[in-house]
Design a protein around this nucleic acid. Structure first.
Lengths: 335, 335
DNA sequence: GTGAAAGCGCTAACAA
DNA sequence: TTGTTAGCGCTTTCAC
């Protein structure tokens, strides 16, 4: 059995009390230099580390933070996680990653699991399926620090980090217009998501600015964010079958973009379509139907969200003032 | 402050002792049906969950397992993680993911962090940079259950899961030969990795079988697994600059494949090259220079590794017999 | 400067 | 069937 040493072992070996050892280890000022030295050297020698579990129980906190994203195999999220880790580890926090796979049920399970003091706070981007927020609201009311990023819950009073989705969508759509497209479709995420609304506004604003009417049949939502099998393909198919077939598609997310390209390939079409969409993928310029894309500063978003969360966690007083940071996107043309 | 309810609160509210509550919650047979019902209903009502930290301290285990992979943004690993989670959650284990980014230092830090009783066991695929294994060996000697998958440490006596790398590499290389290629280069991972050796054997076997001489200058290793900036590009460049420029490349990993294609694009060449390599990417058939690929059963590998680990963790007696499972790959032609 | 002891939330041996 | 209590490893107040 795996049985590491405890301060009790050290105390016994050194003929001291556990409290003296404990204080010596954390450099308590009341301990004589000599004792301190003896203890530290011995601890070093036997490669001692304090039991973090016991520490958590005692301190009622775990020095770890939980992340909930829909999936880690998405470049946007993996970059964000890298950003989160970069801050968290520096400040002495461990990071626990969990995936909702865009499913409501799994989001609920994961957040329950993470709360209950196995983490000190949570950074979350909502699942596409989530429409009921009581599981989060309850924990928040109980005092669990929560920071939203990307897919935020607007109604909740806490810190939030997003990119400028509206502006990004606007640029992408305007790019499609600049390529001479007039029948621009929009392949969107689940309609209740914050990012879906914001991106749709950017899309519509661009159309309006250039005098192109917004047509509802050109906007297709994917309720499951593209994680349901065949979901994206169906949406693309219905666009292709419209009497007025689109000449361009603005796609709202990375996952949808890949699904869209795959569908176009399957139906052996798309050569006459211009595609632009949100994506942080690094292989985007290797794709056959090229994909111009809106890039989000994922790493930076992760960093900021983590700083906000740790502020919340370490704040001595209940925080009353919350901020929502919005970061700029960039647009990358691939043709 | 975040302050969840404890069994003490329940005991007080229900006028019972904490032990009764504790037993009722875990369905102890000695508790009367009535008391059990009252307790369970009340717990349900106030949405009670036991404090896992206290539980861990008491039981000297955390019911969580640690995973160390080079990066989560790699489809092979994210699929493996999904496999790991599928078993772990069913058996009541939490999963803690951490990334080495193929760096030795981070692997050491992560494994230290995970051990020390914050996890009950570890599933690991080695970092490309790792050449010294004492950090793992020490923990293993102390009794921490460890299972290797993918990039395994052959010298360690424990369970291991791999795919049939040699066979996969053989098929890919034979495919290139079947396309009429005779000057087949091999873009490989760090040379000390188990997978590198196995895949190289498959590559060489295929060449030999077809009477093609193995040339050392056609084999390029990437010490950092392609995670160092410019590493892959440099390797590809040196292949392209050979007096006898290759007519095909067999690439040893997903990351290297993407780097390779990017490099070919950058040098505006590759149309005359046939590429095949290991990849679990789902966008592989959308790539411009097409990439035929060896698919590994990542999800299944994750499942098996987890079953093995949990067996190790829950075994009453020290396990002496270890097994190495090897799963078959499949080959997917894209042209 | 050091030690004894209580307590964090939970379980389990022992009592009743 | 239920309650009392000690103890998991650590920190911290209070004595000395």
């Amino acid at each position: 059995m795996f049985k590491p040493t405890t301060i009790k072992d050290i105390a016994k070996a050194l003929n001291l009390s556990t409290s003296t050892v404990s204080r010596a280890l954390r450099g308590g000022y009341e301990i004589s230099e000599e004792t301190k030295k003896i203890v530290l050297e011995y601890a070093e020698k036997i490669n001692f580390t304090r039991n973090p579990i016991a520490l958590s129980l005692k301190e009622r906190r775990s020095y770890s933070i939980g992340i909930i994203v829909c999936e880690v195999a998405n470049v946007f999220f993996s970059q964000a996680i890298a950003g989160i880790e970069s801050i968290a580890y520096n400040k002495g926090y461990h990071v626990v990653i969990s995936q909702s796979h865009d499913q409501y049920e799994r989001e609920v399970t994961n957040i329950q699991h993470l709360a209950n003091r196995s983490v000190d706070g949570i950074i979350i981007s909502l699942a596409a399926e989530t429409k009921d927020y009581t599981h989060i609201e309850k924990l928040h009311e109980q005092g669990l620090p929560i920071v939203f990023f990307d897919r935020i819950l607007e109604s909740m009073q806490t810190h939030k980090v997003t990119s400028n989705n509206t502006q990004g969508a606007f640029e992408a759509t305007e790019f499609l217009i600049s390529k001479g497209c007039k029948k621009i479709a929009h392949l969107a995420n689940a309609p209740q998501l914050s990012i879906t609304k914001q991106r749709q506004i950017g899309y519509e604003d661009a159309l309006k600015k250039h005098g192109i009417p917004v047509k509802n049949e050109y906007i297709k939502y994917c309720e499951h964010g593209g994680s349901e099998k065949g979901e994206v393909e169906l949406a693309v198919k219905s666009l292709l079958n419209l009497p007025q077939k689109p000449d361009a598609i603005f796609v709202a997310s990375d996952r949808l973009s890949m699904g869209c390209l795959a569908a176009l390939k399957k139906y052996n079409t798309g050569a006459d379509l211009v595609i632009a969409g949100f994506s942080n993928s690094d292989v985007v310029d290797l794709l056959k139907p090229s994909l111009s894309c809106v890039r989000q500063p994922a790493f930076e978003m992760g960093r900021i969200a983590t700083e906000m969360l740790i502020n919340l966690i370490e704040s001595k007083y209940p925080v009353e003032e919350f901020e929502t940071k919005m970061l700029n996107t960039t647009f990358q043309i691939n043709e």
